[in-house]
């Protein structure tokens, strides 16, 4: 009978499941790992399978992380973290399949780009990286009355923990919050303290509704600049949409009425 490990949709959750699945010695082909997002449902229940629910165990996850770093490479470890944060449905099982290859081939596993599994990892990693890079530019902060900078984002992948360090480095003396409204995650930075990632309860979410976004004169200045910098004779909305997909615009100051 096939075993399906259901784990939490997080780096640690997936790593824990990988540890348990691997050490069960049940045979790679008889195992499948599925990451279940909070409040999500089983994607597709399969007949004739054992479902095993995995409780995230930080110690076990750490062991997996350590052996990836030692036996494969730090690069691959970072790539797998990004895969775990991606929105790719079957990522947990893909990571498992990839690690079978990775522990066999060592650091050069990422070179095998023509291998289907490696190629998929490569593509998802690129996709996450692209979104991270987009967000570094497209995040917009609004200044609240007390000087706090707030930003709301709706990324496809769970990139908040990947983008926050950039802003911490860039704005060391600012107090700021970035809020992923889809995932109810917020990162908070207070000067000269380490930044934190918060999971917001329903109550906390209302706080974000109180923030106003329009009483900041620099917003108008920015909109003015944005409109003036375009050359009329070269207008090209297709190119603009290609470079700046519509999905980002609802969170960007210059596209607000």
């Amino acid at each position: 009978m096939k075993r399906i490990y259901i784990c939490e949709d997080s780096v640690d959750g997936i790593f824990t499941a990988i540890y348990l699945a691997w050490s069960s010695r049940y045979g790679h082909n008889n195992i499948k790992i599925e990451a279940k997002s909070k409040g999500g449902h089983y994607t597709n229940l399969e007949l004739f399978s054992d479902y095993i629910t995995v409780d995230t165990d930080y110690e076990l996850a750490l062991k997996v992380a350590k052996s990836i770093k030692e036996k494969i490479s730090l690069d691959v470890y970072e790539i797998l973290c990004r895969i775990a944060l991606s929105n790719y449905e079957a990522k947990a099982d893909l990571m498992y399949r990839f690690l079978i290859l990775g522990f066999h081939l060592g650091p050069k596993v990422m070179e095998c780009l023509s291998n289907e599994i490696v190629n998929q990892i490569f593509r998802i990693n690129k996709n996450v990286n692209n979104e991270v890079h987009h967000m570094l530019g497209f995040v917009r902060f609004s200044q609240q009355e007390n000087g706090l900078l707030t930003s709301v984002i709706h990324p496809k992948n769970n990139v908040i923990s990947l983008i926050t360090p950039h802003f911490v480095d860039r704005l060391p003396e600012e107090k700021f919050v970035i809020y992923d409204e889809n995932r109810h995650l917020a990162s908070l930075h207070i000067p000269s303290r380490p930044w934190v990632l918060l999971e917001l309860s329903d109550l906390d979410k209302d706080i974000f509704k109180q923030f106003t976004y329009d009483e900041d004169s620099y917003q108008d200045l920015w909109k003015t600049f944005f409109q003036r910098i375009s050359i009329k004779e070269r207008e090209n909305y297709k190119l603009q949409r290609n470079n700046l997909p519509l999905r980002f615009r609802k969170d960007m100051t210059e596209f607000q009425p």
């Binding site: 530019g137 497209f138 910098i229 375009s230 909305y237 190119l239 603009q240 470079n243 700046l244």
Partner: peptide, 10 residues
């Protein structure tokens, strides 16, 4: 880093 794209796509 590109922060935005104006109507001419630049």
């Amino acid at each position: 880093i590109c922060h935005s794209f104006s109507a001419d796509g630049r």
